[in-house]
Amino acid sequence: MSKPSPARYRTTNWSSYTASLCKRGSLLIRLDKNMTWFAQHDGGPGRPAVFSDAAIQFCLTIKVLFKLPLRQTTEMVASLLKMAGLAGR
């Protein structure tokens, strides 16, 4: 048995096709400027937490989405914070 020939599609609107290819590579990550990045001191014994649970969850989400090791994830999040103007707060 022979395979059926693949369907051929002809592009008629090249400007729309090119724009859709460009959009496919774009990435938008929105950061909430009101998000608490540093943890509040709870007053309990032991070493206090440095980062909030929301910040840790954001970093782990980036790690899983892009399949990055931890060091690359921290650098990526640091660059995202720098671009958003949230670094150093």
Rank of each mutant, 00 (worst) to 15 (best):
T18L: 10
V50G: 01
S5T: 14
A84M: 05
L81G: 15
S52L: 04
M76T: 10
S5F: 09
Y9Q: 08
M83F: 12
A54C: 03
A78F: 11
Y9K: 10
R24P: 00
L31V: 04
I56D: 08
L21E: 12
V64C: 07
C59H: 01
L68A: 04
R89Y: 12
P6M: 04
A55F: 11
F58R: 14
L68T: 03
L60Y: 09
P4F: 06
G46W: 02
S20Q: 08
T73C: 14
M76Y: 14
K67A: 11
G44V: 05
G46E: 01
Q72I: 04
M83D: 08
W37G: 06
H41S: 04
L68F: 01
R71D: 15
T11M: 06
P6E: 05
K23I: 00
G88A: 05
R71A: 15
K63R: 15
T61Y: 02
A39N: 05
D32R: 15
D32C: 07
C59V: 00
I62V: 15
V50M: 07
L31A: 04
G25R: 12
M83Y: 10
S16C: 04
P4N: 11
Y9H: 08
W14P: 10
S16R: 08
P48Q: 02
K82G: 03
A19G: 06
A7S: 14
F38R: 11
K63Y: 00
K33T: 11
K3T: 01
Q72P: 06
I56Y: 02
Y9I: 12
L86M: 15
A49L: 13
R47Q: 08
I62N: 06
F51L: 14
K82Y: 11
A54S: 02
S15K: 14
D42K: 13
P69I: 08
I29C: 04
E75W: 13
F38M: 02
D42N: 12
R47L: 10
T74D: 06
G85W: 05
Y17W: 13
E75Q: 15
K82L: 09
F38T: 04
T61C: 03
A84V: 00
N13S: 07
C22F: 11
N13C: 07
S5H: 15
A55C: 08
K23N: 12
K33Y: 07
T74N: 09
K82C: 03
S26Q: 15
R47N: 03
M76L: 15
N13F: 04
T73L: 06
T18W: 11
S26F: 14
R30M: 09
A49W: 09
S20H: 04
K23G: 02
S15V: 09
K82M: 07
V64F: 06
R24L: 13
S26M: 14
A49S: 11
L86C: 13
K67M: 05
I62Q: 09
S79H: 09
P48L: 02
L21W: 07
L21C: 09
G85R: 12
S5Y: 10
F51E: 10
R10L: 12
K23D: 10
L70H: 12
L31Q: 04
S2M: 10
S20L: 05
K67Q: 11
W14R: 13
A84D: 00
F58G: 03
E75L: 15
L86R: 14
T18K: 13
Q57T: 10
C22D: 10
L80E: 02
G85Y: 06
T18H: 12
G88M: 04
I56S: 05
